[in-house]
Every structure is written in structure tokens, then in C-alpha cells.
Design a protein around this nucleic acid. Structure first.
Lengths: 191, 191
DNA sequence: TTGATAAACTAATTATGTTAGTTTATAATA
DNA sequence: TATTATAAACTAACATAATTAGTTTATCAA
């Protein structure tokens, strides 16, 4: 007993993320995470301050991976192409990692500044892609907010089970949404 | 002790909703609700099956009120006017009842069919408003899904604390988002 | 008046998060 | 090498929440 393991915050969060995808986000408790790591739950307090930090940690981790996925989708494309690719990657990520995506939704009750930072990182990719459009800074911000909102909203509602039963093709609904927004950009360009 | 009160499920849910707005959704526990009603928590089980039913109940209640707000905004308007008015009402509701709106977000972990029903009711108003556009049924579904997603996504991200610090006017971002989508409809119409 | 029922109660159980205080392994130092 | 400081585990205990079982009481109908 009392044997030293090589635990640290990152290891704990990785285990928590794995647990989330295995058994559902709602079953990620300190007890379960500790068990998965072969440790008693109070030991986790040596590495993080409590369950809230676990929550924000998982959210950051999930956002970080989403960011990677999006960056991967954007590389080598530009303007509308890039935006549409990002949109598809965004939804793919959410479908492939539903529990982690939920972790992003269930923000630790509003406003951890680090989570917002990461959120901004996701958004920064969008800013880069938007550059060729040469909108003003304000206009770019407006569009990026809206675009991200649309992706997030669609994916969230879909994950929550809306859009079922209703016959029409969900992929197509999503594609159209992204396309409408991207098209509205070309509009402004030609002004 | 043991005095009969006139409790029923609706009274409990109303109290829970009030409590949510007073002290935050995360502090809505059976204990707190019971206390507010001058009753012990196990007594609540005479009227509902547990904390999950409390959760779904609050979500339904919140959706019901959102529905009213939206219906109120749509009446007497048509097409783009109606869509924009609905958009503004949607966000106003979320801002005025932030805890209740969170209750809608935090779905009782996916897919209670009644909650989806109510969700559909919200959406049905959108269908009515869309009629004059004379799109096909499929096209209407696609648009409504996207429009609702955009509203929901924007409002959620805003409530979660994104869009802060960043200088641009949030009202304007929202207005633009709604306007882009509505404009894309006029596009199709003129085809 | 009596008896059935609904709705409250008390008491106890389980689960989770958390704190306090203790022990032990490891790494640095005398 | 022996010692000691520290980090990281532990045990034990407590608080709060949800829940269940079983009990009591108010009210209404026969």
C-alpha cells in the first residue's frame, strides 16, 4: 500500500476522458476515475482541487481535440472550401466523441476563463480562414460568432435527439445551413 | 405534523423553477425544493418519481414558456419579419430566464420523448411562419432545423460566456446571423 | 362512526465529494 | 551510507443528496 504511482493531472484527465466515452459522462465520478487508476479517490486531491477542476479539465481536453480536428480539416483549403470542411469536421468530431462533446456543453457552470481561452483557439482558426474575405474586423467577428453558433447549435440539438423521427436527411440539413452562411459571405464580397 | 398540503406535480415544478431562477439551477435539489414548500424531501415522491422527473419537468416547463414567448412574437407578422421577431424573442427569453434556459440545455441526458414533443411545438410555430415561402416540405424542414440551430447555438454560447471580452456588439452579431439565414430564403424564392 | 386512501412523516441506506490527519516511498543531503 | 524532507499515497470520518421502507395521520365516502 501507499505505493507511488506516476499520477499527475494529465493522466487523471486522460483516464476521465476514456471513462466518459466508455460509460457515459454522467458516470465520471472521482470514485470511478480513481478506481480506473487503481487508487483511492482522496488521492486524486494531490493533483487536482476537486470535481469542478475535473469537469473543466475534461472540457479543455475535449476542446483541444476538437481544435486539432478542425485545424486538420482547414489545412490546404481556403475561403468557402475551408469553412465547409471545418463545418463537416466539427460535426464529425461531435458524432465520434459524443460524451466528450457533451463535456464541452456542460460547461462548469459558466465562465472558466481557460475554457474560454481554448474556445478562442478554436475560433482563431476561423479568423485565419476568413482573412481572404477582407471583411472589416468587426464584420469578421460577427460572422465567426454566427458560424460557430450555427455549428454548435446544430450539433447540440442533434445530439440531444431532436431531428429524429422527422424524415428529412440530417446531413443535408447541416450542409445547407453551412452553405447558406458561407454564401452570404460571397454576397458581401461582391458589394 | 403530517398535515395535508395541497401539493401536486405542477406546484412542485413551479417551485423548482422559481428556485432555479433564485439560486441557480445547480442548487435545485429535492431537499431545497421540499424546504421551499415546507415539506420533507421524501414527500415529493408522492407526486413524482424522482430527481430525473424533476429535471425533465423543469425542462418541459421552460420549453413551454419559451414557446409562449415565441408565439407572442410571431403573431401579426409574416415571413422574414416573423422570423426575425422570433429570433429576438428567443434570445430575450434566454437572457431573462438564464437558469431556465440552462434547464433546456441540460437535457435529462438525451431523449425524453415528451421534451422532444415540446421541442417540436416550438418548431411547429416556425413551420407556420414558413408557409408563405412555399418551399417544398423537405426544404422547409432543412431550413427550420438550421434556423433553430443557429438561435440555440448563439444563445447557448453567449450564456456560457463566449463572446465576452471580444469588443464587437453582441446584439449586432445575433441580428446579422438571423438576417443572413432569412436572406438566404429570399434567394431561393426568386429562383 | 368507521375504514380506505392519499399524503405526509421518520429512519435508514447508498453514493459522492470532501477534509484531516497519517504513513510510506523516493530523492536530496549530511 | 544514514537521514530527513517531501510528495503522494493511505484511512477514517463527515456532509449532502437521492432514494426506499415502513409508519402515521388527515380527509372523504360508505
Amino acid at each position: 500500500m501507499g505505493t507511488r504511482r506516476n499520477l499527475d493531472a494529465q493522466t487523471i484527465l486522460d483516464a476521465a476522458a476514456e471513462l466518459a466515452e466508455e460509460k457515459g459522462l454522467e458516470n465520471v465520478s472521482l470514485l470511478q476515475v480513481a478506481e480506473k487508476l487503481g487508487v483511492k479517490s482522496p488521492s486524486l486531491y494531490n493533483h487536482l482541487s476537486g470535481v469542478q477542476e475535473l469537469s473543466t479539465g475534461i472540457a479543455k481536453l475535449a476542446l483541444g481535440r476538437l481544435e486539432e480536428a478542425i485545424r486538420g480539416a482547414a489545412v490546404g483549403r481556403s475561403e468557402g472550401d475551408a469553412l465547409l470542411a471545418i463545418a463537416l469536421a466539427y460535426r464529425s468530431y461531435a458524432k465520434e466523441n459524443p460524451e466528450l462533446y457533451k463535456a464541452i456543453l456542460r460547461f462548469p457552470d459558466c465562465g472558466d476563463s481557460d475554457v474560454q481561452e481554448k474556445g478562442h483557439t478554436v475560433v482563431r482558426i476561423l479568423y485565419q480562414v476568413m482573412e481572404p474575405y477582407n471583411l472589416g474586423e468587426e464584420e469578421t467577428i460577427h460572422f465567426v460568432r454566427g458560424f460557430r453558433s450555427a455549428l454548435h447549435g446544430f450539433v447540440s440539438l442533434e445530439a440531444a435527439g431532436f431531428f429524429r423521427g422527422n424524415g428529412a436527411d440530417v446531413d443535408e440539413s447541416y450542409r445547407q445551413l453551412a452553405f447558406r452562411l458561407v454564401s452570404s459571405l460571397n454576397m458581401e464580397k461582391s458589394d
